[in-house]
Design a protein around this nucleic acid. Structure first.
Length: 606
DNA sequence: GTCGGAATAT
DNA sequence: AATATTCCGA
């Protein structure tokens, strides 16, 4: 279709003279585009009638190298008919209508590219790529002969570049690629070095370096090549960095693919190298770089670990790790939502990491885990589920189900978690005595008969207080006396950085606590307020599935235990919630137990 | 050898 | 300040 071999052989100034068929309904727009193309020494034939254009290409197929066809947003058929009937002519579709459907349809019908209008020079400048692409495409049956000279010319150009030394190693790769395509062809015709190497998909990978700085300029016009190929040959799956909508979509389609968000073309160069593909200590799950492609991601987990992780599975890309500062970008969420659907019924929940640079491949150092609120929330949930005394790194890790997270990561975070709690909690001197009890991370507090009273009048329900996850007073009580299975940690939150409301007692671990309710109304306040606590994280489904402490009327249990504890350890201070018994009631009880007299005070202090 | 936790390093 | 790494005891 394009032109004869002879034509191309003599094509010294490729791509100058490229014959472009322009099919445009709007004559003004057509004139603009034409002017731009001609400014680049392209040879333009304008058509406004689809049938006419079709008849011309069928009668004189050699008259055009490439077509630029407008898809009318009004009449959807115009343009598509041409596209469908001009299979052999590389056809670029353009439209004012940027909707994904239109683009998809164009590509699906065989367009080599979709360019959204208006067509800038930038977009038009490199349309010749498609020609080269065809030429180097092994599947280009029809074009093979006529494009052979183009091929040779390009090969020649590339080799000239090689001579420049500057990008030798990389270019040599390209040459390899090229020679694969040139196969049995042979002598290279002297080509022009006037033009940069094309960045067709096959060639793109390495060629960008031929003129590094220009990368962005090519971005738009060279985007989406992969999806545009209709010759059935799948090519490199390099992520492009254009800004077009479809690009975003493509990106999303690549589940799990994490890109640097800045969209810089340079930045994404071969970012797919996964770092940390597997720890050899058998300990860490791999923590990979943020910009791997799908393959890299799935393969970055050592097989062994994969199986271990299989239980985990909700695809989450928690972090945008391109910056030191963690940013909870909407993208993050978007990808999270997206991801969970198709790849696996259960896909891994991944952790985002910081990396210093995309290129570090062999850096043995682990990437930093960014404990984004989301991640931290998971952590807290896990801790809550486990209960404070069960919350050990391995179990937390298991519960969190975050791929890429290691026990070390969790341990480290747990350490901080506890430290923060500890910092916040122990202010009162008489807490010390409790510190020695057992190996509790939650700094125990004076025994309280009841959990902190949260007045509905003064405290709104729910997640008003993001905290380190647990009310110390609650915990202390529950830890010491509570039933182990029902830790009653306050479901919380992502941050311990919150500032308590003024006037609100905030001596718990990160949780503001109102003054303990006097024992007169304890049960009521307890049972009324705990649900509020449990609701603190509305998003958290875990609490709906887990056994509710209230099914077991823990309030009563707690009271019993507190009382028992107080009785069995009379040397300890009474829990705040308990009043010392009155002398009368003590005497009465003693006499009920058959003890008639009390030794004088101090007589047994000896 | 593994784990959890604290101490220490980055 | 946050996280990773190392050390140590169980």
């Amino acid at each position: 279709m394009v032109c004869t071999a002879n034509d191309l052989q003599e094509w010294k100034d490729f791509p100058q003279g490229l014959k472009v068929l322009l099919l445009e309904g709007d004559s003004v727009s057509a004139a603009e585009v034409r002017a731009k193309l001609e400014a680049m020494d392209y040879n333009v034939s304008t058509f406004c009638d689809e049938n006419e254009a079709l008849s011309v290409i069928s009668s004189r197929p050699e008259s055009f190298h490439i077509a630029i066809v407008e898809v009318s947003s009004s009449s959807n058929q115009r343009g598509f008919k041409f596209l469908e009937n001009a299979k052999d002519l590389p056809t670029i579709m353009t439209s004012n209508n940027h909707c994904l459907n239109t683009m998809m349809k164009c590509i699906a019908l065989g367009a080599v590219e979709f360019l959204s209008k208006p067509l800038s020079e930038e977009k038009l400048r490199n349309i010749w790529q498609h020609l080269v692409h065809k030429a180097f495409n092994a599947g280009a049956r029809v074009m093979a002969e006529s494009l052979k000279p183009v091929k040779e010319s390009v090969v020649s150009m590339l080799q000239l570049q090689t001579g420049n030394k500057q990008h030798e190693s990389r270019v040599s790769i390209d040459i390899e690629k090229v020679s694969r395509f040139t196969d049995n062809d042979h002598e290279q015709s002297p080509g022009s070095d006037k033009y940069p190497a094309p960045s067709t998909p096959q060639l793109r990978q390495g060629i960008r370096l031929l003129n590094d700085g220009d990368c962005q300029e090519q971005t738009n016009s060279s985007t989406e090549k992969e999806s545009g190929e209709h010759d059935g040959e799948s090519k490199s799956v390099e992520t492009t960095c254009g800004n077009e909508k479809s690009n975003g979509q493509l990106r999303q389609l690549r589940q799990g693919t994490r890109l640097l968000e800045d969209g810089d073309c340079q930045e994404q160069t071969n970012c797919s190298t996964e770092k940390e593909c597997g720890e050899h200590d058998g300990e860490s799950k791999s923590v990979e770089t943020t910009c791997g492609n799908l393959n890299a991601e799935t393969e970055s987990i050592p097989q062994q670990r994969k199986s271990e992780i299989t239980s985990a599975r909700e695809e989450v890309v928690l972090v945008d790790a391109s910056k030191g500062e963690s940013l909870a970008s909407p993208h993050t969420q978007k990808r999270k939502d997206l991801g969970s659907n198709d790849r696996n019924s259960k896909s891994p929940n991944k952790v985002g990491v910081h990396s210093d640079s995309c290129e570090i491949r062999a850096n043995p150092k682990k990437m930093k885990v960014d404990w984004m609120p989301e991640l931290h929330k998971q952590f807290v949930k896990a801790v809550e589920l486990l209960g404070i005394d069960q919350a050990i790194p391995s179990k937390i890790l298991e519960l969190m189900e975050v791929e890429g997270l290691t026990r070390h990561n969790v341990a480290s975070h747990l350490q901080k978690f506890r430290m923060h709690k500890r910092q916040i909690l122990p202010k009162e001197p008489d807490r010390k005595w409790l510190n020695q009890r057992g190996k509790s991370y939650c700094v125990p507090r004076p025994i309280m008969a009841f959990p902190p009273y949260h007045s509905n009048h003064t405290l709104p329900m729910a997640p008003v207080y993001p905290t380190w996850g647990q009310s110390g007073s609650q915990t202390a009580g529950m830890q010491i006396w509570g039933s182990p299975g029902y830790p009653l940690w306050q479901p919380t939150a992502e941050s311990w950085h919150w500032k308590p409301f003024p006037g609100v007692q905030a001596d718990a671990w990160g949780c503001p606590v109102l003054p303990v309710q006097p024992p007169q109304a304890p049960c009521v306040s307890y049972s009324q307020n705990m649900p509020a606590l449990l609701n603190a994280d509305a998003v958290d489904h875990m609490f709906s599935t887990r056994r509710s402490p209230f099914e077991h009327h823990p309030a009563e249990e707690v009271v019993d235990k507190v009382v028992k504890e107080a009785i069995s350890k009379p040397w300890l201070p009474l829990p705040l919630g308990l009043k010392p018994p009155s002398t009368d009631s003590v005497l009465a009880e003693l006499s009920r137990q058959g003890i008639g007299s009390i030794p004088p005070k101090g007589s047994n202090s000896g």
